[in-house]
Amino acid sequence: MWASIQNIEQPATLLEANKLNDNKNSVLFSGGTYLVAQKSKEVHTLIDINHLIASKIAEEGEQISIGAGVTLQQMEGHFDKDVIGRSAHQSCYSKNIRNQRTIGGEIAQKSTTSQINVLLHAINVNLKVFVNDRTTEVDINSWDGEGIISEIVFAKDRNVDVKGYSVIPSAPPFIVVGYNYTTKMCVIGGRTNGFANFVVEDGKIDEAVEEKLAEFFADDHHGSCNYKRHLVKVALRDFTG
């Protein structure tokens, strides 16, 4: 029971949903795996957007589009052994949860321990986001967190990989490294405050990046900052041979 909930709104349009989402006691609701587990007492109104966002994956010409309501399990099924399918699978040990958790919620939640989210940042997918009164397209690395994500769009032709390091396979990884072979962009997540990204040529990290990583990682029970920097280098060496 989520005792603080007084209202559930099922708006007819994204515009209406956006208007309803204008105070701290309301929250957009899709898969609900984060929100219902948290049961924040501050939330009094759920704005259900499930009927407003697509839950299909479409491949047309050179482009793939994923509705924000698509679950991680659907992604795993569709992309199967591809890195997208694999990382959707690895983002959550529980199939029960993957059956419910949406990719829109994953991106909106800015989940840094999610391998699929790090991978989407490495691809630098475009998000279709409804802000104010219209849908705009913005790349995931530039998205400011405002609005309602309705779709994720990217080119079929992509050359990316991702790797996670965790204490045991079912635990969320404390470091996730994504790499785009085409743009040479490396994206790092895990038990971190947000994502770090930088360009890495030939698997070599320059001094500026070393400094950035030293600030980015903290010493904790998963290991020292140095150890984590080392893991990033190992991942990059594996990616770039």
Binding site: W2, I8, F29, G32, V36, S94, N99, Q100
Partner: peptide
């Protein structure tokens, strides 16, 4: 909290944790 699966139900033939389903 969605962690244990003791509350599993089938929703349209798929297993989900009923404690997370509004």
């Amino acid at each position: 909290l969605g962690e244990c699966g003791a509350c599993t139900a089938l929703v349209d033939n798929k297993a989900q944790n009923s404690c997370l389903i509004m």
